[in-house]
Amino acid sequence: MAEVKTKGEVIFNRAAIVAVLIALVIMLTPIFWIGATAFKPRNLATTAPPTVFFEPTLSPFAKLFTKRSQLREPVDEATYAAAPWWEQLIYDGGESVVRNKKTGEATSSGYGNRYMNSLIVSIISTFLAVSMGTITAYGFSRFRVPGEQDWLFFILSTRMLPPIVVAIPMFLMYRAVGLYDTHVGLIILYTAFNLSFAVWIMKGFIDEIPREYEEAALVDGYTRLQAFRKIVLPEALTGIAATAVFCFITAWNEYAFALMMTSRNAQTAPPYIPSQVGSGLSDWTVIASGAFLFLLPVAIFTFLLRNHLLRGMSFGAIRK
């Protein structure tokens, strides 16, 4: 069947397309800027007007992952020829790699470790928050909990003040119990942040799943736990995916607590990137490359779950 559109609808559609394009440009420009700067030679990073066309280089990434020092005089040709490609890129920028005195190996900058810390902390805390949140939400949704409304309000109230308000007491407590600068410490913190959010969002999704599904499974010979696993979880998958994306983004982007509660061992990537600003030389290409790599996991995670996020609630098989 052909769609019939009035003139007004056509104009509205075109206006909507233009609006979406403008919004897209506004939102994507900073990301393009970061992405472009991450591949620029250092001397093109801060030109005015900005350089749009250039020959991309990987030297910012080589610099990002290594510890370097300024070269007083150019390196001799034999050493340059013997060096691996990434070290040559560093030499090209007038710097040399700082080597371990005993082994002679290049020293890493610490970004790699920080990045791994970010992944470990974000993935584990997201998993914990979503799984505990789902189970808690199921309990609130399906059983009569004495004081249910009060409990739910209490859970929500943990998000009612800016987290940074509790930073100092948290810092003192963490230091006292030995959680300062540990992965476990950050995981507990981020799980606690996200749990209230996960409970509330998942409760909404689970409330939407009709009880009759589980009751049918219970009558058909399954236990409550089996019914939860075989019926509720698959039905709640959309909600779980959405909640996981938001929890992951929160944990991945968290800056203030990561800066305060960690130093060397468990520090995540966000506090590291700005630490490269200043300290004598501000190499914006290195900062951009760090930020660019930092954007990738969230983008990939969201991309993988996009079908669940877009599918929405499609409960077609029940009559209400």
Binding site: V219, A317, R319
Partner: peptide, 14 residues
């Protein structure tokens, strides 16, 4: 060992 048919049918959509 009893079966139940619901008004809402409650067929598992997935």
């Amino acid at each position: 060992d009893i079966a139940f048919v619901f008004q809402s049918f409650s067929l598992y959509p997935h």
